[in-house]
């Protein structure tokens, strides 16, 4: 039951997508001058943030199961 409630709240995560893209773009643009390296750095940063969020999610998920 609690899992279903969690799924109902998960729509809020969609708000993080534009935020991640914006943060990655601006951060990459302050590190490079040309468009190509900016885009490459942006993609790397997006992947890094997403991976970090997934890792934190998995850790919290298993921790909450043991509580």
């Amino acid at each position: 039951m609690n899992d279903w409630l969690l799924l109902a709240e998960i729509y809020r995560l969609w708000y993080s997508l534009p935020l991640i893209v914006t943060v990655s773009l601006v951060y990459a643009a302050t590190r490079h001058e040309d468009l190509r390296p900016i885009l490459q750095h942006t993609v790397r940063t997006i992947v890094w943030i997403m991976a970090f969020m997934v890792i934190v999610f998995v850790i919290l998920y298993f921790m909450s199961g043991r509580l």
Partner: peptide, 10 residues
């Protein structure tokens, strides 16, 4: 333009 769109848009 990138900064303008991203930051003001956000």
């Amino acid at each position: 333009i990138l900064f303008l769109v991203c930051i003001v848009g956000t």
